[in-house]
């Protein structure tokens, strides 16, 4: 499930589905174990996404960013 197309939203949505399925007690043992493995992977992915926006606020200025891009552009061409 944790492929390149996975987003935080899809991961959380799938985790909620997995927990609902597990709470229903209708899943067999094999399905339960696979859901747990998938759920752990998605939780790890979502935690990584949260971690990425939890370390520290970074502030950039658009004008400086554009200036930097314009400065770097010739260097790239050469």
């Amino acid at each position: 499930m944790t492929t390149e197309t996975t987003t935080y939203e899809s991961a959380v949505e799938r985790i909620e589905e997995i927990i609902a399925r597990l709470d229903s007690n209708q899943a067999g043992l094999r399905e339960t174990l696979e859901l747990c493995r998938e759920g752990r992977g998605l939780i790890e992915f979502a935690a990584g996404e949260l971690d990425a926006v939890g370390h520290g606020l970074e502030e950039l200025r658009l004008d400086e960013l554009i200036q930097r891009l314009e400065t770097d552009a010739p260097a790239v061409q050469t």
């Binding site: 985790i15 997995i18 927990i19 597990l22 709470d23 899943a27 043992l29 339960t32 174990l33 859901l35 747990c36 759920g39 752990r40 939780i43 979502a46 935690a47 949260l50």
Partner: peptide, 16 residues
């Protein structure tokens, strides 16, 4: 997420 992880673990363990 921590709660979800705990519930997944509990469910998995309980199932086994």
């Amino acid at each position: 997420l921590a709660d979800a992880a705990r519930r997944v673990d509990v469910c998995g363990r309980a199932a086994v």
